[in-house]
Design a protein around this nucleic acid. Structure first.
Lengths: 215, 215
DNA sequence: TCGAAACTGTGATTTAATTAACAATATTTC
DNA sequence: GAAATATTGTTAATTAAATCACAGTTTCGA
């Protein structure tokens, strides 16, 4: 396996996740005026080891000032080059109930290359209102709005019983990435990147390990 | 490595997650009157393979009627024996903003051995109200309520800037499992099971793979 | 200026998770 | 009732992820 610094292979999924997390800590460091950071410091801010941090950073081909730690500013920029699309990506939140609003407000104010352009809902009282800073469209305008605004990522926070149907519409509308927060597993074509997160499963897992601790 | 059906070792984390997911599909099957299910059917309902399903089921020591598929009822029960605590576990949701409410309402009506007993918030207008079916207490009564109701699991959905402090209080109050939905990584003692989920990271990951598809 | 200390970068190793491969068993078909 | 088929349970192989171990810098202290 040969890796150069010029062309990137796609990174391991876990590494991508950690880079996203590192970046946020690093931005925090910048605000606090910290200019350099050691691998073990960054590790301590997250739940991992210095080696893991160094390996992740190795993957993106950045190297530090030896013995001074990583230059925080530079590292933020390099992570940005990896994670962000140059022109940014447009995002829609589908279903603006509690979860949709939670998600949307999380993003507000965060400078980011991801722009929440639209939210969608079936509830007519929400339509055309601005919710959490973003305009709400009726679901039946999904395809039109996705196309005209070139939305490539959708966050699915609709009730379980409409999840599959809406997902199909999203695929049809040409979405490229789908984050599914419903409890219904979805099937999408291979070229659409799908990630699913199920809160109930997470908590059942916590409960299991509370009941049966390891070693 | 020797595994008997009588005493269980703790299961792989991913297996636990999948079992939780399987169970929900299986309950759905029961409602539809389906009494048996093949490994490949269960696999198709999720995003995995028949082998994976069989391996997961092997882990919990259940074996099917050969060639008839798994007995749905039995399998649900066996998964329940693995995942659930006999007497159930009590859960509290800390921070009843959008995300806290989303989580709480997800659980309402789901028959489950996990009981959301209390929610907590600092907002005095919420206190003593019943939100999403659960009573809201002031944060300063955390320890008292956790102790008297024997709450062992906490769902942390407070704003980022109070996350660490509240987490410390939860540990102090004797919580056994903590599900952290804030964007702040937490440090808790080893005996407290911690799971963290960060929406922003998830979406940044989706964005990365939209930009750099695999193979 | 030399040696010790503090970090990084990375090959080698280990561990965990997934997938392949297939024997064993039950069912159906003729 | 023998052969073909469908399905499980499990061992072995593979792949992915994390960790170990250590050589290579740079800096510091005497």
């Amino acid at each position: 396996m040969h890796q150069s610094n010029d062309y990137f292979m796609t990174l391991p999924e876990r590494t991508v996740e950690r880079l996203s997390e590192y970046r946020r800590s690093l931005l925090q460091c910048l605000e606090e005026g910290k200019t350099h950071i050691f691998s073990h410091e960054l590790a301590n801010l997250h739940h991992n080891t210095a080696v893991q941090v160094r390996r992740d950073i190795m993957f993106i081909g950045y190297t530090s000032m030896q013995r001074k730690g990583y230059d925080v500013r530079e590292l933020v920029d390099v992570i940005g080059e990896i994670l962000d699309s140059e022109m940014g990506l447009n995002v829609a939140v589908i279903g603006i109930g509690n979860l949709g609003r939670a998600f949307t407000t999380y993003f507000v104010g965060k400078r980011s290359k991801l722009n929440i352009i639209a939210t969608f809902d079936v509830d007519t009282t929400k339509i055309d209102r601005v919710i959490s800073g973003v305009k709400c469209y009726p679901l039946n305008r999904l395809k039109e709005v996705v196309e005209t605004h070139q939305i490539s990522i959708a966050i699915l926070t609709v009730p379980a019983d409409s999840a599959s149907e809406v997902a199909a519409q999203l695929v049809e509308a040409g979405i490229k990435g789908l984050m599914n927060f419903t409890t219904i597993p979805l099937n999408v074509p291979n070229e659409v990147f799908l990630d699913e997160y199920d809160m109930i499963t997470s908590v059942e897992k916590v409960a299991y390990f509370v009941k049966s601790p390891r070693e």
